[in-house]
C-alpha cells in the first residue's frame, strides 16, 4: 500500500520534472530574483533590503504560478488521457491515488523552491549579505502556502476542467491574500445575516496572508515561534480538510 502511494508520488514528480513549463517558470523565478540587484541600483535606501524584498517577491510569485500550473493539470490529465484506468484497475484505492498525487506535487514544490531558495542564498552572499535564518523561515512559510495552493488545485482538477480549475485556484489564491479586508467588511456590513456570511467565508477560505512574512523578514522582525507553530498547524489542518474533500469527490467519480 505504501509502495503504491510512493510510486504514484514519484511518478507525479517525474511528470512535473520532465515538463518544460516547469523549468521555464523556475528559470524566470530565478531570473527575476536576480534582477532585484538591478532594482536595488535604481532605488534609494538600504540596497540589501531592496534586494531581499524584490527577490523574495519574485520567488513568491513564480513559485505560486508553478503550484497552480502543475496542480490544475495533473488529475484532469490522468482522467482525460485515461492513464488513470491503468492505475485504478490495479490494487490501488482512490484515496491512495489522491494522496500519492498530492505528495508528488508537494515534492515538486519542495524541489522547485529549494532550487530557487538555494540560488537566492548564494546571490545574497555574493552581494555581501550573510545567511539570514529569517529568510529560511520565509521559505518554510512559503512552502506551506504552496502546499495549500496545490491542495486547492488538486480539489478542483478532480472534478472540473484545467481552465476552470486555474480560474478557481487563482481566485482563491488572490482572495487568500486579502483576507484582512474582513475586518473592514465587519464594520461596513450592518445586517447580521451578511455579517454572519462574511464571517463564514472568512473561516472557510484560505488565509494565505498568514504565510507571507516577507515584510517582517526584510525589516528584521520575523514572527515568533508560537505564530509560526500556529501557521503550520493551520496549514496542515487546511490541507487535510481539502484532501478529505477531494477524496470524497473522487470516490464518486466514474471513468466511462
Amino acid at each position: 500500500m505504501r509502495t503504491a502511494v510512493k510510486g504514484i508520488a514519484l511518478n507525479t514528480f517525474r511528470e512535473s520534472a520532465r515538463n518544460k513549463v516547469f523549468y521555464l517558470l523556475v528559470f524566470f523565478g530565478v531570473l527575476f530574483a536576480l534582477s532585484s540587484k538591478l532594482v536595488s541600483f535604481l532605488t534609494l535606501g538600504d540596497a540589501m533590503k531592496v534586494l531581499k524584498d524584490t527577490g523574495l517577491a519574485a520567488i513568491h510569485f513564480f513559485s505560486a504560478l508553478i503550484a497552480v500550473f502543475t496542480g490544475v493539470n495533473l488529475v484532469y490529465k490522468e482522467i482525460e488521457k485515461k492513464t488513470v484506468l491503468n492505475i485504478l484497475s490495479k490494487p490501488v484505492s482512490r484515496d491512495q491515488f489522491i494522496f500519492g498525487k498530492f505528495l508528488g506535487l508537494a515534492l515538486t514544490m519542495l524541489v522547485a523552491l529549494a532550487v530557487m531558495a538555494g540560488i537566492f542564498f548564494v546571490f545574497v552572499a555574493l552581494n555581501g549579505g550573510g545567511f539570514d535564518p529569517a529568510i529560511a523561515l520565509y521559505f518554510l512559510m512559503l512552502l506551506l502556502e504552496l502546499l495549500i495552493i496545490v491542495a486547492i488545485s488538486l480539489l478542483f482538477s478532480s472534478f472540473t476542467t484545467p481552465i476552470l480549475s486555474f480560474i478557481f485556484t487563482l481566485s482563491l489564491y488572490l482572495i487568500g491574500h486579502v483576507m484582512w479586508t474582513y475586518n473592514e467588511f465587519k464594520v461596513v456590513l450592518k445586517a447580521p445575516l451578511w455579517r454572519g456570511f462574511a464571517r463564514f467565508l472568512y473561516y472557510l477560505l484560505p488565509n494565505l496572508a498568514k504565510f507571507n512574512i516577507k515584510n517582517e523578514v526584510v525589516l528584521g522582525t520575523p514572527p515568533g515561534a508560537w505564530t509560526v507553530l500556529l501557521s503550520i498547524l493551520y496549514a496542515l489542518a487546511y490541507i487535510l480538510a481539502l484532501l478529505c474533500l477531494t477524496i470524497l469527490i473522487f470516490r464518486r467519480r466514474e471513468f466511462s
Binding site: 500500500m1 505504501r2 509502495t3 503504491a4 510512493k6 510510486g7 504514484i8 514519484l10 511518478n11 517525474r14 511528470e15 520532465r18 515538463n19 488521457k81 485515461k82 492513464t83 484506468l85 491503468n86 492505475i87 484497475s89 490495479k90 490494487p91 490501488v92
Partner: peptide
C-alpha cells in the same frame, strides 16, 4: 488489464512504466 487503445505516460520509458506498474502491486 489492458484497456482499449491504451495510453501511457509518454515521458516514461518502457522500463520506467513497468517499474511504476510493479510499484502499484508492492
Amino acid at each position: 488489464f489492458l484497456p482499449e487503445n491504451p495510453y501511457f505516460y509518454d515521458y516514461l520509458t518502457a522500463r520506467e512504466l513497468l517499474t511504476f506498474a510493479a510499484s502499484l502491486f508492492d
